[in-house]
């Protein structure tokens, strides 16, 4: 492998939608084998686009990687189709859960095992139920009627059915109660530790993301503006203020005093 054991390596990619709209202006990042890497940023920074560029789903939205390259386990994947990329073990869990609403929970999981060995289906199912015991109790429920937390578990479980090597998680905490978010983050950590699945995590909830990730990147306007070990970013004053909502003293800052817009500008130049 080219670069010190990086499983996934995104090299300076540029992404355009409809051949005109430039969304990513040179994004580079690395995910080491067995690591958890967080990708932070505000709305519209290009986080989801980055994930879709990696998973190949971009082409489906008339997006295109116009420059740069993506390598996975030493192989170029930026010209491959979404199916080929998924077959290599990169699975994206889409933002907003996107379960198959008219199928039952277990049918949803079985769709995840579409390409797998049919004889090992029950084995995979057991694994998913081991990590998400609650899914077993609602296995025959129609997915559209499940709660948000259940659907998020189902979305991750469904991805787990494919036997992935790298999970691209797009905002797994979106719209969920804090307790459930905690639970899901714990399961992600366990999956990473016990199954050796690498994770690239996109999150608005920077506090949580920086807790479970080892390394993090901050994306703004289609560029990586900051990167470093999660612990270092946690202590970075800008991150603390803009993403964690804390001042240097650890106290909440009043909105009036923030003037965050001016300071934020500094990153863009």
């Amino acid at each position: 492998m080219a670069d010190g054991g990086a499983m996934l390596q995104v090299n300076n990619i540029e992404v355009r939608y409809h051949q005109v709209i430039l969304v990513l202006k040179g994004v580079s990042l690395k995910v080491p084998a067995g690591g958890i890497v967080a990708l932070l940023g505000a709305n519209g920074a290009g986080k989801s686009t980055t994930l879709k560029a990696i998973s190949g789903l971009l082409k489906h939205e008339d997006g295109q990687i116009t420059d740069g390259s993506i390598e996975f386990m030493g192989q170029r994947i930026d010209r491959k189709s979404a199916e080929e990329i998924a077959a290599m073990g990169i699975i994206q869990v889409l933002e907003g859960r996107r379960v198959f609403e008219h199928l039952t929970v277990e049918e949803n999981l079985r769709v995840g095992a579409h390409h797998g060995d049919g004889r090992r289906l029950s084995e995979r199912l057991e694994l998913v139920y081991h990590y998400f015991p609650h899914l077993r109790t609602i296995r025959n429920r129609v997915a559209g009627f499940c709660s948000g937390g259940e659907q998020q578990m189902l979305a991750i479980g469904r991805a787990l059915m494919t036997n992935p090597r790298l999970l691209l998680l797009d905002e797994p905490s979106l719209g969920l109660a804090p307790l459930i978010v905690r639970e899901i983050m714990e399961i992600i950590t366990r999956l990473n530790r016990e199954q050796g699945i690498a994770v690239l995590l996109v999150e608005q909830n920077a506090k949580l993301a920086l807790e479970i990730a080892q390394h993090a990147y901050v994306l703004e306007n289609g560029r990586v503006v900051m990167e470093g070990p999660a612990a270092a970013l946690r202590d970075n004053p800008d991150i603390r203020e803009f993403y964690l909502g804390l001042t240097e003293m650890g106290a909440r800052k009043r909105f009036r005093e923030a003037k965050w817009y001016k300071r934020r500008k500094r990153w863009l130049t």
Binding site: A86, V99, F100, R158
Partner: peptide, 17 residues
């Protein structure tokens, strides 16, 4: 099942390969 999944949510089905 794959066909039903595709009918339900094309993007999600593609994300599973």
């Amino acid at each position: 099942l794959a066909m039903q999944a595709m009918a339900d949510d094309e993007m999600a089905a593609m994300s599973l390969g």
